[in-house]
Design a protein around this nucleic acid. Sequence first.
DNA 1: TTTTGGCTCGTGGTCAGACCACAGGGTATC
DNA 2: GATACCCTGTGGTCTGACCACGAGCCAAAA
Lengths: 235, 235
Amino acid sequence: MTETTARAWRVVLDRIEGDLLDGTLQPGDRLPPERELATTLGVGRSSVREALRVLEVMGLIRTATGSGPKAGAIIIGTPTGGLSALLRLQVAAQSFEIEDVVRTRVALESAVVETLAQADTRDLAEVHRLLEIMDAAALSVEEFVALDAQLHLALAEACDNGVMTAMMAGLRDAIEGYVVSGTERIPDWAEASARLRHEHREVVSAIELGHADAARHLIADHILGYFASVSTARS
Amino acid sequence: MTETTARAWRVVLDRIEGDLLDGTLQPGDRLPPERELATTLGVGRSSVREALRVLEVMGLIRTATGSGPKAGAIIIGTPTGGLSALLRLQVAAQSFEIEDVVRTRVALESAVVETLAQADTRDLAEVHRLLEIMDAAALSVEEFVALDAQLHLALAEACDNGVMTAMMAGLRDAIEGYVVSGTERIPDWAEASARLRHEHREVVSAIELGHADAARHLIADHILGYFASVSTARS
DNA sequence: TTTTGGCTCGTGGTCAGACCACAGGGTATC
DNA sequence: GATACCCTGTGGTCTGACCACGAGCCAAAA
């Protein structure tokens, strides 16, 4: 009864979600061609495309033109991009406060470092590699910020939790512009970056010593401290 | 030059995001009509619609037919729905593990209760209301699960952090099906629900006593305990 | 004058058809 | 046997058309 009122693209979306849930569609599979989906579901091709567009932006499918096995719409699982886009847009639309994003990052990263500190084994090779790079070279502000993002992301990835990794990346992305523009308010960048690098190493040390609580507080102070220094003068 | 390679709908999406960022578009504003956007940006109306569909699913706009001030596409900020849809789909596509979702919930809710416990003032009226309801009535499993979701969400809302609230709601939504079907594996539901209710009250007590660490551990055990009891036999 | 009924118009929702660009595979040619 | 060509299937896009809906307007009726 409500099927007639349901919008056509939602029919397509629900169908695909259903096929995903019951295993009809698996990661790596190809979706039927748009034209076929349209006739199968009794909707127009444009409605199918609207649904596919949503799936694409959310990182569920990848589309390619041409022919062959690599063409068409293929189920993938790259949640990071979609999460980033969503959070970025919500920040742009002012439905998310920067402060709330930062506090959420603190919550997630505290859990990350706590988990890492309590783990029996951990692979921090990438983290150490980034620490070295950030110390070695004379970096521009933009390069430093980019590496910093990579470092925090590497910590999340070491945790081997796809959800947390994706969320951290998304949250970071959402406030990327704010972080970059915020560096302008820091009077002595050389000193600030030295302090940030030192805090990074302290966090990693705490993790490797298994000091979970210390790591939690260090990372929280690290993040909050940076944003406090950046938001001194509120416009 | 790359404008020809950039896909048309992305042009629309980028334009709207830009207008959002520089304040040309504000929450509550109406977007130009689809046909006007199409001619303005030099793309087809279908491409405009694909972009608007993405914005709608992400919770950034609300569309309505008809005429008058309430019609058209209006900027809103309801990130919860979009986040839920995204996480739900990623879980369906098996790019998110249930276990990772649960652990992320633990991380966020730990932070929530810690923040509440450390706060000078807090409004837990809704939380207490839900606690009463869950104790008073003889609830079906579905009702109990729904109320439990509301309770956890109420805690997040008491924290006054839009990002965390949206994420918690989304994470909970994503595994809703799993939670409901998991109740079947619990042999003695009456005993289990009594225990869950008791744990809820313990958490709230710890918050109100200002015992931040205790609250953190209680909520973590509460969530992890439930999922451990539900996933005894892995298929 | 006031009310009421229908009319018009602008909006999103949908569909059908057409064309293009692209990539792979098959086929004819050298 | 190797190469160049065309054929086919795919997504990407545009155009035009129609529908449903809702608000505002205007004329006819009370």
